[in-house]
Nucleic acid binder design. Structure first.
Lengths: 141, 141
DNA sequence: GTGACTGCAAATAATTTGCATTACA
DNA sequence: TGTAATGCAAATTATTTGCAGTCAC
């Protein structure tokens, strides 16, 4: 199933309509190789949907995030950026050179969580992990 | 050595002056039990330093972050918040109920990093980890 | 004494909202 | 067809900057 089909299905399941505008936003995020700000998305999606409004981009991103179809990416200094999320629980690796984002799965950090729980007295429920480095392409050049 | 002394020392080392305003900002962050936005800091620090300007808060936070004396905390939905960082490499555990932030150390995620590197082809250099859960006080009530 | 630091106000950027109109299901 | 979704413009919020005056070292 393609990304678009998946998103369309999820939208329908939650009674959201698949409008031209949302379609354009989803296409942009699907093709994106790096996290995109709302403004980035707007600019790109406008090519496909010239009468798109920036407010709609914000509203659409909000819905997609709510449905976990995209994930917020916090970049080094300033936050913000959105990237398509393929799996229900994945994390992102971000290239510090070209900004490319790749999702990876399988984060067994149970030992770290146990250690943190011991130190802080917290009962950990969620975690948030992002790796920064260089993608292979950038590394080789 | 107290937090303040530590910060003062670091500022001096880098030829920054310890002004009344900076002192107030540092005090606020030292006493803070949860991450604070620039606006939060401004409001609190004004009690101690009535003629403080918001722009100064932004400028001070920028310096403190540059010196790794505070750390940016990305909250669940919206980003942003700053918290004092005691160690050069620590992570934060955040209580989802009361927002309290506690730093912990010792994050051996080398296995996760190796696995991610294998999956993505990335050469990982840095990581960013935050745990969310409930602090013991909130858990017991 | 003097250069770094400040407050203020204005500029800029980012995000949200109200509302009349449009278009998906 | 009915209602959710839209564009636009205005409102709000967040952040940055220029500059004349001030203060820590």
């Amino acid at each position: 199933m393609s990304d678009l089909e998946n998103v369309a299905q999820q939208l329908a399941r939650h009674k959201f309509k698949l409008t031209r505008q949302r379609h354009a936003v989803i296409d942009v995020l699907t093709d994106a190789r790096s996290p995109m700000t709302p403004a980035n998305v707007f600019e790109s999606a406008q090519r496909q949907c010239p009468d798109l409004g920036l407010a709609t981009v914000y509203r659409t991103l909000e819905i997609l995030e709510e449905l976990s179809l995209i994930r917020r990416v916090h970049l080094d200094e300033h936050c913000e950026g959105f990237a398509l999320s393929a799996t229900s629980h994945g994390h992102h690796a971000i290239c510090m050179q070209c900004n490319r984002v790749v999702e990876f799965t399988g984060c067994d950090i149970s030992q770290v969580m146990a250690s943190a729980a011991r130190q802080t007295g917290f009962h950990i429920e969620e975690h948030w992990l992002e790796l920064m480095g260089m993608c292979n392409d950038c590394y080789q050049s």
